[in-house]
Design a protein around this nucleic acid. Structure first.
Lengths: 240, 240
DNA sequence: ACTTTTATTTCGCCG
DNA sequence: CGGCGAAGTAAAAGT
């Protein structure tokens, strides 16, 4: 009966075992869990998760690249996952349900704070851009729309245009900002400072900066999220 | 087709969905995950886990007590789990496999101390080793590293080296300790006592003890946990 | 209820 | 490869 399981393991499938089992762990700590019905997941990379019917976290687990041994004892199936000096032992009371899946998942996972959130953060904590920076209005209609930027004055009273990017700033970003600032300069007469705030900047974008006078300020989504967590403590959910 | 799922939710079953889906999260941060095949677990307590075919951690999740909404769109099934201001959206490409389980699990999970905790317990209650034992320093760099042991003096002022094991002491443990104490004796000139503290000792390890003069002291992780529970009541978290 | 600390943390980055 | 810090940390323990 354990052939199914071994075959699925060999085939690098994702495996789900459901049944009554007891669990023991020895390693950085030790733990014991008596009989009960649980879901056990064995992934392609040989990570093992033991999930009880409640709770976000697995009650026991083994990280990827563990060695998985399947035994058929008198009492039923046993799965032992060892990894270095750590051992996870799952003893089923009988034969569990065995499901296996061939999952194809090549998608990229992308995580970010939204640009909108970054803007909110800068409005709440302008020093994220530079000390003494004071936002004036958070938007302004120019020729091109769809931009998310901030107008303000620096500590010397000079006009500043800030453009936010949640990803690495590209040369194209710099050129766009430069064109924008130029048209703004023609309109207003003064030459405002231009700052691109992004988590990083590409080599060529940096070169474009030094040519055009655009300044780069490192600002990560994480920094913004941090500020938001601190500032939005009991108020201002109406800023968005 | 979504009736199955709704019924399982109402029946407070543990649910597994397997299929091709895209995932979006909005909350403390934002994330996007394109189409791919995943396992989604919805537990009795309305916690939600999205697991890719590899990796220990869920790529996305929602903690317990989230509100779960099931929609049947033109493209397929969608599950939206909201919790406070956080939202997790799982859009299936078609109808996923729907498995549901009624799991009964009333067992108690018990975790025993790590060796590090055992050390803390002995530092707090040296009598666990023997009456009158007084720890001096809790570590000492010798040739081999990675050891967790304790130096001290017994009630007669004689130097004592204590090695802790959370499992049955093996012959190898005794030999190691013996070698260690010998090198220490050469370094310091005096012959310190050597104590191995473990929950039990193997037959051959006991023999090695009587040959080498290493002493065995029964000390279980549970005894240490007990001491820690009693002693660490309002102080001394700075011992580690 | 809120704050602080822990974790078999895991995971990523950087030297 | 080891140390250091962040996490949508979650969960437990203390206040």
């Amino acid at each position: 009966m354990s052939q199914n399981l071994r075959a699925a393991l060999d085939a690098r499938k994702v495996i789900l075992l459901v049944g009554s089992c007891s669990v023991r762990y020895e390693g950085r700590a030790s733990s014991v869990l008596g009989l009960g019905e649980r879901m056990i997941i064995i992934k392609r990379d040989r990570s093992v998760l033991v999930h009880r019917p409640e709770g976000y976290e697995p009650v026991n687990w083994q990280p990827p690249n563990s060695h998985i041994d399947v035994q058929e004892t008198g009492e039923g199936l046993a799965v032992i996952a060892t990894r270095g000096s750590e051992m996870l032992e799952i003893r089923f009371n009988g034969i569990p349900q065995i499901h296996s899946f061939t999952l194809v998942d090549d998608a990229r996972f992308e995580m970010y704070a939204t640009e909108s959130e970054m803007k909110t953060a800068v409005m709440l904590a302008p020093d994220l851009i530079e000390e003494g920076f004071q936002p004036l209005a958070d938007e302004r209609a120019v020729f091109r729309t769809g931009r998310l930027d901030i107008f303000g004055r620096d500590k010397n009273g000079r006009l500043v245009v800030v453009e936010l990017k949640k990803r690495q700033a590209t040369r194209e970003d710099i050129l766009q900002l430069q064109r924008y600032v130029e048209s703004l300069g023609r309109e207003l007469g003064g030459g405002p400072r231009a700052i691109i705030a992004a988590p990083s900047i590409s080599r060529r974008a940096a070169a474009a900066c030094s040519q055009s006078g655009v300044e780069f300020k490192c600002l990560t989504p994480r920094m913004c999220t941090e500020v938001l967590r601190k500032k939005i403590r009991g108020l201002d959910p109406f800023l968005t």
